[in-house]
Design a protein around this nucleic acid. Sequence first.
DNA 1: GGCCTCATTGGTTCAACGCT
DNA 2: AGCGTTGAACCAATGAGGCC
Length: 299
Amino acid sequence: MEWLNYHHLLYFWTVARAGSIAAASQELHVGRPAISMQLKSLEAFFGTPLFLRRGRRLELTETGKLVEGYASEIFRTGRELVEVVRGSSLGRRQVVRVGIADVMAKLIAFALLDSAFSEDDDVHLVLSEDSPRRLFAALAVHELDLVLSDVALAPGLDVRARSHRVGSSTTTLFASPELAARLAPGFPGSLDGAPFLLPSRESAVRASLDRWFESERLRPRTVAEFDDSALMKVFGQAGRGAFPGPTAVAEQIVERYGVRALGVLPTVTERYWAISPERKIAHPAVARIVEGAAAVFPS
DNA sequence: GGCCTCATTGGTTCAACGCT
DNA sequence: AGCGTTGAACCAATGAGGCC
């Protein structure tokens, strides 16, 4: 069988992404006639048009869309190959870009990542924090190598990635010593009308928490809602309200923020996910993080 | 093996033309 | 005017084949 000319395919793919031959010619540093000719050659090779010429506009045909999909995959794999080969060269540090869901307890994130490193690892972590939605978008365009989140990738999302469940924890309620002294007697009934600091409604644990409040017939007084779990704890430390946190790191929360644990909510569980892009060639450091993390909070 | 010739491929510029 | 297409002329790199 005759081989596909990948150079032609690259031109086609660039034109499809750039939207015009002019834009592609700038991107590729190649003249417009040349690109036009190569497009024609590719169309002749396939025996069917890939673009519809509508006036001076180019529109992908159905075949064109199909070819573009394959080309994206081909060139994505090519980039990946370069990244992996260059990234794993001897003596070069591996950069791993990790996105952490803002609602996730930082102590949990630290424990998940820290477990993955051995002393002889030469890995350079670049950590960022954002909403899961934005982190998944960054993952889709290869700006991130890994996302740690309280929610798995939604099935409908057009992101080529895999969610690995790396642990779970029940939830504990915390409060400053003064507030705890007031709320501890008669827990959990004492929580009715009590001031609360809660994770935003975007978070997975919030839905679970609301169900618990409902089942216990409690109506907490929401003082503030947070996207950022660390900020929530700072408010909690100042006695602004009771707040939830993972039982798995309850001791550290008590120690670090000088708060007291009010009680454990066994039905309010939080799951932790490590979401990594589906790669033909696995990022070795990411694989280690995913494997190592799974052992921290066994679910 | 080294050298030459030739064909092929893919690039360039330039000009002209059609379309919006 | 801006953009895409076509054609012509030309250049450079490469590979195949023939010759010494």
